[in-house]
Amino acid sequence: MFAARLLCELPVDSINRVLGTELEVGCAWLSSIAHRHIAVDCSDDYSICIVNLELVISQPMYVRQSDRHARNFELIRRIDLEGRPLMLVAVSLERNDRGNYNVRSSYLITETDLEKKKRSGSLKLIIGS
């Protein structure tokens, strides 16, 4: 039911420039386990996240190194959704055995969450970089 999917190419040049990482070219991969996690554990957000997943990954507005999960980074983008217009996608920093980057999670965040991430200093604007 929760099929694995090869998604879009990550904008690694922009991510590397902003975070100082050395990611190699690769696509985002949604495993069946991650797909199930988003559908079950983030069920209120699932229908929105699954439709907008590739947009947020390919054209993020913000990127940040995850503080709680050091092996992941987060991509954030405003989406056209009244009331909760921000979506976060957590992605692994290491490529899998197929050369792709595993999506770990995806959920909607509030403007307050975004402001908190900005105040922490870890959130970086990626547009135009």
Rank of each mutant, 00 (worst) to 15 (best):
M1T: 15
M1C: 10
A3H: 08
A3T: 14
L7C: 12
C8N: 09
L10V: 04
D13F: 00
S14R: 14
R17M: 12
L19Y: 05
T21W: 02
E22R: 06
E24C: 05
V25Q: 05
V25I: 05
G26M: 03
C27V: 03
A28K: 03
A34P: 09
R36F: 04
H37D: 10
H37Y: 14
I38R: 07
A39Y: 13
V40H: 06
D41G: 10
C42N: 15
D45T: 13
I48C: 07
I50F: 00
L55K: 11
S58A: 13
M61N: 08
V63S: 04
R64K: 15
Q65S: 14
Q65K: 08
S66W: 00
A70G: 13
A70T: 15
R71K: 15
R71T: 15
N72V: 00
E74A: 12
E74G: 01
R78I: 13
I79N: 03
M87D: 08
S92K: 13
S92P: 01
N96L: 03
N102K: 06
V103D: 02
R104Y: 06
I109K: 00
E111R: 01
T112R: 08
D113T: 11
K117I: 07
R119C: 05
S120H: 05
G121P: 04
S122E: 09
S122Q: 09
K124D: 09
L125Q: 12
L125E: 14
I127W: 07
I127C: 11
